[in-house]
Every structure is written in C-alpha cells, then in structure tokens.
Computed example of a mutant assay.
Amino acid sequence: MMKFYLRLIVLLIFLSACSNNTCKDVDCFSPPESFTFELVDRSTGENLFASGIFNSSDIAVVNSLDALPREFTFIDEDEIDLLVIYSVGWDTEVVNLAVSVSGQVVFNFYVDAERLSGNCCSYTRFNEVSVDNADFEYDSSTGIYTIFVQPQ
C-alpha cells in the first residue's frame, strides 16, 4: 500500500510540473521586421514615384525561388512614396524577391529568415539580408533602403 501512495505522489508531482505553464501570463507579439524601400533617380535623387516617372500600380514583387507573388504595401502620403515588404520572416524561409516596375526588374532582395522561440515569445532572426543588382544606401536610423535607379 505504501508503494501505491508513493507512486501516486510522484505521479501527481510530475503532472503538476507538466501543467505548470510559465508563459501563460506573458503577453508578447513579435512580428518580423518589415523592409522599406525608396526608389530614387540616380542623377537627381528625386523619388521616382513622387516625380511621376514610376506609377505605384505598376509594382510587382515576386519570389524568384518559387515564382509566387509576395505581399507589399505602397505608402504614398505626405509626399512620402515608399515600398514596404512586410511578408518576410513570419516563418523560417529563404526568399529572393525580384522587385519590378512596369515589368522591368529594379532590384533583387535576398533574405534568409529563421523564426525562433525563446523566453515565451517567437521572434525572427535574419541570417542574411542583401540588395542585389542595384546601388543602394541603408539608413539604420530610419530603416529605409534607398535604391538608386537610372530611369529609362
């Protein structure tokens, strides 16, 4: 009978330890970072959408690894014309995005993203991020990639 009670106590301790969720009272939502781009004339530095050379309805963002389009947003308020790609990094993935305007590829954007969990929250680690086939500057204070384009 003593063995029975001892086993019951061990089982109850084990079950209570398994049901103790230390993260149940933690609120956290850690979306992946979005990527923001401004396309400017290489010669003048003028935004190509604000100047009317490019039209935002002509933008396409396609993952060249699987030929699927990727979601993006175009911000055009208060004379700010920016392309924002927010759909990368929700899962562990590698993307090579071709960003085109009017069918012409303006630049490629490569991201190796890894979705991780720790301290009761999920988050994204970007193992590699690169802009290819275009000259650019990255402003770490604003998070904006300025892409220099020679308009046709």
Rank of each mutant, 00 (worst) to 15 (best):
T44N: 05
T73P: 05
T142R: 10
C23E: 00
N21V: 06
F148I: 02
V94N: 05
E79K: 14
V40K: 03
I9M: 13
T36K: 15
I147Y: 00
G45H: 07
A67M: 12
L8N: 02
F148L: 12
F35A: 07
I144N: 05
F109S: 04
D81I: 00
A17P: 06
Y110M: 13
V40H: 05
D112R: 09
E114Y: 00
D58I: 06
Q150W: 00
S122K: 05
S87I: 06
K3D: 13
N55K: 10
I53W: 12
P151K: 11
E137P: 06
Y86F: 15
Y145Q: 09
L15A: 14
S64W: 00
F4N: 07
E33T: 14
R115N: 02
F126Q: 00
T146V: 11
D112A: 10
F74N: 08
T44M: 04
N47E: 03
E128Q: 14
S56A: 09
L116F: 01
N127G: 09
L12T: 10
C28E: 02
D76L: 12
F74S: 08
E128R: 15
Y5D: 10
W90G: 14
S43C: 03
Q104S: 15
F148P: 08
F72K: 10
D135I: 12
Y110F: 15
Y86T: 11
G52R: 03
S56C: 06
F49M: 01
L83T: 10
M1S: 10
F74I: 10
A113M: 05
L116Q: 15
N20A: 13
T124W: 01
A50T: 01
D66M: 07
G45A: 01
S57A: 09
T142F: 04
L65D: 11
L97N: 09
V95G: 06
I144V: 15
I13G: 12
R42G: 04
